[in-house]
């Protein structure tokens, strides 16, 4: 497919910044992403719930997923230019994320119920196997 050899300015995707400013900005986001990676690896070695006197892995899981959410938002927002994308494209992705949440919450709540009331109940009934 041939393309026009015109000199029309490609204004729409140029966010009005110089190449260097844009590249430096990407590098900054990248630095943030790497720091967050180091943070999440560090967090996995410590007991996040310690200050609140919580035991178990739940606080670690919440913390790890929060960091992942922040990282993915950075990629989504700046590398994938969600900040310059139209409302429709944002809506599509947001709708998919809502369905993701729906599936995760619905599935796991059903199985937590199953495990808590049915499996444990059955175990108690047969005398704590």
């Amino acid at each position: 497919m041939s393309s026009a050899a015109t000199t029309a300015p490609s204004g729409v995707h140029d966010h009005g910044r110089s190449y260097k400013a844009e590249a430096v900005f990407y590098a900054e986001i990248f630095g943030l992403l790497i720091s967050l990676t180091i943070l999440t690896v560090t967090l996995s070695y410590v007991n996040v719930g310690w200050a609140l006197d919580l035991t178990g892995r739940a606080p670690n899981i919440v913390a790890g997923m929060l960091v992942a959410a922040v990282k993915s938002s950075l990629v989504l927002w700046f590398f994938m230019h969600m900040n310059h994308e139209g409302r429709l494209n944002r809506f599509i992705f947001a709708f998919a994320l809502c369905l993701f949440t729906l599936a995760v919450v619905a599935f796991s709540s059903d199985f937590v119920w199953l495990h808590t009331y049915v499996v444990e109940g059955a175990r108690a009934a047969v005398g704590g196997m």
């Binding site: 990676t37 999440t40 690896v41 967090l43 996995s44 892995r57 670690n60 899981i61 790890g64 997923m65 960091v67 992942a68 990282k71 993915s72 990629v75 989504l76 590398f79």
Partner: peptide, 14 residues
């Protein structure tokens, strides 16, 4: 990359 950002903690760290 985005998918991996979630896979990494979910499989390796938590």
């Amino acid at each position: 990359d985005l998918v991996w950002i979630f896979l990494f903690p979910a499989l390796y760290l938590l």
